[in-house]
Design a binder for these strands. Structure first.
Length: 393
RNA sequence: GUGACCGUAGCUCAAUCGGCAGAGCUCUGGAUUGUGGCUCCAGCGGUUGUGGGUUCAAGCCCCAUCGGUCACC
């Protein structure tokens, strides 16, 4: 019995979309899948039981954060992350590569690795491809990621190439280092290449040809325009081996999920659904809504008509609105549960449409119906501008 | 009853020698993409208690009046 396998259940002839099944030591995952993010061994405000009920199949945790607090050795003493956090399903740990990027002012990069000052107490730490393998083995996730370098946007060609090549060298070091740790863990490779399609292609080929059982696409959605992100992803997908699962790191929104599947991605993780939920933004099939908006103050129905999440089944929009405005702890839970369930139901509907051979129709219908608020805002601004101009003339 | 102090945005308060009335919160919207856990951006909102006066100019100075707080009788 292999500890990790990926099988393709169906492919969509009109796009890169496919549906698959991933086997891990802690259970199987049906793809495409959205993975809720629990950086500090907790999906903020949501319990493992609630995650299960929302349909979560696999969750993320973060090496950098857990290494600093409570420490990977302590987690190992408790039997690894699964036992420590009482989640018995699959877990993926991110390497801390993104923190190398997002906490840039606290770090120094070298061939050896990334020297850090802790954001918690200023203490000095060194992340290397080798130490990350050791820490992730102590955390004990099913899928682990190697240390990589995420270029910031925009980025010069030289810096982009340098970051990519260092990521490649670090990937090979990680493969070697992993040999001495737990064989039941699966190490994914990370494709980089910044914002140049040619570098992305090179990275996809290079990482795709190394003996990684799965691939993560890193360094996207860090400030570049959406259209650019999709273009970069379209450059990557054709170069990737068909038989390995593809994980689009740190993406995305509901519309990103649909688009990403269409471009051949199988796994998605993102803090967006839980983060925006905490600030009052909830997903519906029509687009995002701000539950704090006064129009919900007396709404008897649920946040989203027809939604099967715990929140929508049991509470009125008016109550959720009230909790959000009052900044009650329960709101964070109810809001997060709704958005997580939204993403997971969307993923499972995408999967069903791929299996049924109707994914292109599903995608087009969804995108026609779902209006990202940013577009609404642009529309509003256009209207205001039109009105202002007509007043002048 | 006497005296002192105070009345500025819905709330809490700024405004130098008299010189374009301002913040925070609330409210109305928006943002957030491998999470540094209540963040960020924008907007609405004013007859400065009221009535007079002085002045080129008054939230500010003077008079009256209403309201509040405190102290004393």
């Amino acid at each position: 019995m292999p500890t990790f396998s990926f099988t393709i259940d169906a492919e969509c002839p009109a796009s890169w979309a496919r549906a698959g099944t991933i086997q891990t030591p802690h259970g199987t995952i049906s793809t495409p899948i959205f993975m809720p993010v629990g950086t500090q061994a907790s999906v903020k405000s949501v319990s493992p039981e609630e995650l299960r009920e929302a349909g979560a199949q696999i969750i993320l945790a973060n090496t950098y954060h857990l290494m600093l607090r409570p420490g990977s050795r302590l987690i190992a003493e408790f039997g690894g992350l699964h036992n420590f956090m009482h989640w018995d399903g699959p877990i993926l740990t991110d390497s801390g590569g993104f923190q190398v990027f997002s906490l840039g002012h606290l770090r120094k990069l070298s061939e050896e690795g990334a020297a850090f000052k802790s954001h918690l107490d200023g203490s000095a730490h060194m992340l290397t491809p080798e130490s990350v393998m050791r820490i992730e083995s102590e955390l004990g996730a099913d899928i682990i990621l190697p240390l990589d370098i995420c270029a910031s946007y925009p980025c010069s060609h030289e810096a982009a190439q340098e970051a990519m090549e260092m990521t490649h060298r670090w990937a090979e070091r990680a493969l070697v280092a992993k040999e001495q740790y737990r064989p039941e863990q699966t190490l994914f490779g990370i494709v980089q290449g910044a914002f140049e399609p040619e570098l992305r292609r090179q990275s996809a080929c290079y990482i795709g040809n190394l003996p990684f059982p799965g691939l993560s696409i890193g360094g996207l959605s860090v400030g570049e325009p959406k259209a650019e992100m999709w273009e970069l992803l379209s450059a990557v997908t054709p170069e990737l081996p068909r038989d390995k699962p593809r994980h689009l790191l740190g993406v995305g929104s509901p519309e990103d999920l649909v688009m990403g599947v269409s471009l051949g991605m199988d796994m998605f993780d993102c803090v967006l659904p839980t983060r925006v939920a905490r600030h009052g933004c909830l997903f519906t099939r029509q687009g995002r809504v701000n539950i704090k908006a006064s129009r919900f103050s007396a709404q008897h129905g649920p946040v989203e008509e027809g939604c099967d999440c715990y929140t929508c089944r049991n509470y009125s929009a008016a109550y959720v609105h009230h909790l959000a405005r009052a900044e009650e702890q329960l709101y964070y839970r109810l809001g997060s549960i709704h958005n997580i369930r939204f993403m997971l139901r969307l993923a499972s509907e995408i999967r069903a449409s791929i299996l049924a051979g109707t994914f292109p129709e599903f995608r087009d219908t969804f995108l026609a119906q779902y209006v990202p608020t940013s577009e609404k805002v642009r529309e509003d601004q256009r209207e205001k501008w039109k009105a202002a101009r007509s007043r002048l003339s």
